[in-house]
Design a protein around this nucleic acid. Structure first.
Lengths: 142, 142
DNA sequence: AAAATATATTTGTATATACAAATGAAAACT
DNA sequence: AGTTTTCATTTGTATATACAAATATATTTT
């Protein structure tokens, strides 16, 4: 059934969640190549981009709670993709060599996802939607 | 941090999920009055609207998997808000008296949510966004 | 009519996520 | 210097969700 055929298609909660689940499904597919969930992958890319990035800043960037980030880091650490270094009360996150070597693969996954999206949406369409969603998300900021 | 300040603000996966989480948070708040999560509440309202509605159709309407709907029904059943009646291989869902009496409260919750949204978004804005999201969600249909 | 297939639902298991409480470390205040 | 407060992170617990396998019923095929 299409989202627009649902009784609740005009409800913001419903529509936003339905869309997020569908988009996530595609993203999961794209990141299978590296055996990571999208959120793990994005976290890892942030760490690769800025080695030593602080855990709290990761939470900001990913718009997730610190506890969720902590759990994501646990998993990435057991996979030997990052290490957590304590510095006073804060935790700095460093990508491992293994993670660095994975960079080209990660790039491929991003491209894969882009391609999947572009098969469905025009560049213009997706840009518009993203802009629209970001604006609203910003307004919902606490 | 605002969504638009994140490094991944231009990524569909990221933006859609960030938005969905924020919207859900508001919705959760609105439905606390009846001690239901938004998805339980929407399911219940569908059952009230169409007593005897089939489980599979609930999954369609809510854009959730049958297994998720089954779990939602379990909870609503222990709360004595619905009963599941088997008819052949299908399950029909009936609201209980208790659920029927809850109708006015449910209405209040919807209004509460609307009000919360309208404090942040104009009618026009939200309409536009919802339309936009539904369109894309439809295209992502398998 | 019996067997095979299709359909609807549930159950087992795993996921990411959040909140609240606990921990640990630094900073601020006597 | 010792105590309190603040801040960053982790841990305990609970959530909704999905996939795959199991179950149960109906339909089709032979």
């Amino acid at each position: 059934m299409k989202t627009s055929d649902s009784k609740y298609c005009s409800c913001l909660y419903f529509t936003a969640n339905a869309l997020a689940r569908k988009v996530e499904k595609i993203a999961i597919e794209s990141w299978k190549k590296v055996d990571l969930s999208p959120s793990h992958a994005y976290l890892l890319m942030l760490a690769l981009d800025e080695p030593g990035i602080q855990a709290g800043r990761l939470a900001d960037q990913l718009q997730l709670t610190p506890s969720t980030v902590s759990r994501l880091l646990q998993k990435l650490e057991t996979k030997k993709l990052v290490i957590r270094g304590a510095e006073g009360k804060q935790i700095n996150v460093y990508p491992t060599q293994k993670a660095k070597e994975m960079k080209p693969l990660l790039k491929e996954c991003i491209d894969d996802a882009s391609e999947r999206y572009s098969k469905i949406l025009s560049k213009e369409e997706s840009k518009q939607l993203i802009k629209n969603m970001s604006q609203v998300a910003d307004k919902l900021e606490d």
